[in-house]
């Protein structure tokens, strides 16, 4: 993982198709061919925030968008399909463990590892941290719409 984001702010839109208020990553740090890392600093106007915390749907959406950004980044560097981000659909989320909800003002960083890919379906594991504290883990399957 790079220390500085490769993509952040408006440039994130080059990697994922989501737009405000559904954008749940604000930085992408790259990774190798099988790994990707993205972050989100939680703001109080986040639509998944309540009582000063980002709730479960927001964490899962953040993980899914990290996976989407991983796909988008790899498409860009390989210049596949014109490098444009694809719409992705969550196939399923398994073995999801959320240890605690992150607070407004905290930055969550999610590390995605690709287990395998069959055609346009990717199976990945995800680990979400605040600093060194693991706050969530899961396995996610992402279907990437390519046409």
């Amino acid at each position: 993982m790079n220390k500085e984001p490769l993509y952040q702010g408006e440039k994130i839109k080059d990697l994922i198709p989501q737009r405000e208020p559904m954008m749940m990553i604000d930085s992408y740090y790259g990774g190798n061919g099988n790994e990707g890392v993205a972050g989100l600093t939680i703001k109080d106007n986040n639509i998944f925030c309540e009582n000063g915390m980002l709730h479960e749907p927001g964490i899962v959406e953040h993980v899914a968008q990290t996976a989407a950004a991983f796909n988008g980044y790899n498409n860009r560097i390989s210049a596949q399909n014109g490098g444009e981000p694809h719409i992705g659909y969550i196939g399923d989320v398994k073995n999801c463990i959320i240890n605690r909800l992150p607070n407004v003002g905290e930055t969550i960083i999610t590390h995605i590892t690709l287990i395998t890919r069959v055609l346009n379906v990717g199976l990945m594991t995800a680990e979400t941290k605040v600093n060194d504290e693991v706050i969530a883990t899961c396995q996610i399957k992402l279907f990437e719409k390519t046409d």
């Binding site: 399923d92 395998t116 069959v118 055609l119 379906v121 199976l123 399957k141």
Partner: peptide
């Protein structure tokens, strides 16, 4: 289905230490 197919591939890859491409599995 197309989503659970990836689970089978992951299972075989993990158990036998091999990689299976989309073209091969088809």
């Amino acid at each position: 289905d197309s989503l659970s197919l990836v689970d089978m591939v992951a299972l075989i890859e993990e158990n036998f230490g091999i990689k299976i491409t989309g073209q091969e599995v088809a």
